[in-house]
């Protein structure tokens, strides 16, 4: 009983602190000003990566990159950003809705990546690029 009360009280405290931060505007996510900013942020993490192409999402919070060797992604992680290099084999599931693409990755610590390109042409291009099945078993939807 005491444990339940303790948990309820703590959950309430966390909720109130979260609400306070949210109301003060501390929930805002990082935004890349433009493609160059997203590219610079990615190269900061992977200076050796040769970037062939970068497409920034419409909201400026995520980008997909075609690298000379594989692929890359960068996205907002709260106030900061998070970058990853990946191969087709690292995609567990790829789905698309309109201009939005969702990648479910095999990376347990970074499982989902969503990007809305704002135009269907770019989404189609990336879908076909990432759907190129090299492992045979990957589920493809959309």
């Amino acid at each position: 009983m005491m444990l339940l009360l303790y948990l309820a009280g703590s959950a309430l405290a966390i909720g109130l602190i979260a609400l306070l931060m949210h109301r003060l505007g501390h929930s805002a996510e990082h935004q890349f000003a433009d493609e160059a900013a997203a590219r610079d942020a990615f190269l900061e993490e992977f200076p050796d990566a040769g970037v062939s192409r970068l497409d920034l999402g419409a909201n400026g919070r995520a980008a997909l990159l075609e690298l000379q060797d594989g692929y890359g992604l960068i996205r907002a992680m709260g106030r900061f950003s998070l970058a990853r290099q990946f191969a087709l084999a690292d995609i567990a599931r790829l789905s698309r809705r309109g201009a939005s693409l969702q990648l479910r990755l095999t990376d347990y610590a970074d499982p989902v990546f969503v990007i809305d390109f704002g135009d269907e042409t770019t989404a189609t291009r990336w879908q076909s690029l990432l759907s190129f099945d090299t492992i045979g078993t990957r589920e493809k939807t959309g």
Binding site: A13, I14, I17, A18, M21, H22, H26, S27, G78, R79
Partner: peptide
């Protein structure tokens, strides 16, 4: 501070 980060930490 960031809302989700701090909430997760706590």
């Amino acid at each position: 501070y960031e809302t989700r980060d701090a909430s997760t930490s706590i």
